[in-house]
Nucleic acid binder design. Sequence first.
DNA 1: CGCTAGTCCTGTCTGC
DNA 2: TGCAGACAGGACTAGC
Length: 268
Amino acid sequence: MPELPEVETIKSSLQSNVGVRIVRVELRREDIVRQKDFAIGEIEGQTITALERRAKFLDFSLADGRHLVLHMGMSGRIYQAPADQVPAEKHIHLLLFLNNGRCLVYQDPRRFGGVWLLDKTERLFSRLGVEPLTAAFTPAYLSRAVKGRKIAIKSLLLDQRLISGIGNIYADEALFAAGIRPQRPAGSLNEEELKALVRAVKKVLRQGIRQRGTTFRDFRDGDNRVGTFQNYLQVYGRGEEPCRHCGQPLQVERVGGRSAHFCPHCQK
DNA sequence: CGCTAGTCCTGTCTGC
DNA sequence: TGCAGACAGGACTAGC
């Protein structure tokens, strides 16, 4: 569910908890912990010193230098609530009670997400590719990444080892904005198209962040509020509705096992 | 190496 | 109203 703009939105909305101490932890499901360098109880009494995003991961730095890292998978949420009003909802797996009167609620029905308790984030983050909103993501970088590759360009955009943070919605939106069909072999893109694609990826991700994410159904920010980028989607989730640009019906096809939305007229 | 299909889960929607 | 089946924003693995 949450892609880069959604995780970035969650991060911003939870920033006020930096500098706050975790007084009590309630782990309701042990099996959501994917990797454990230390026991969950050891985060009790610790202050959150930073909250950052890496790809689709949310990274809580703790005062002792260790990290609590979360991934939302398809259906995960993390939001703050008054500590004395913990929601009586299903699939709440982790609660962090803070000394500012709030608690952080981690909820994930499908459990494709998870929690990492790490001494260092290196092992988890080192296999991730470039952050698409940094200066390191350039046409030259993408050109090297696609060279000789027959894989569909959309699948390549979703490969977190190359570019980290793009998911199904923003991949489709970026390809539409760049005028490139999702099933095109990556290596077939010319310099001009690569340039357009880099620009389009940055553009749609920034728009997504500005609109505080896309709420198709599940996404909520750190205050449990919906985003608004769904009102600006050009292709994703629009089925065979008319293209907003040319009026021709959009098309949905499976590409690399994922649904791909595109305009056969506007995208080449 | 490249790609597909299967896997992990629950919830929701569609069609009968 | 019940039920079966398809599908969902992610990421990993096995196997051809």
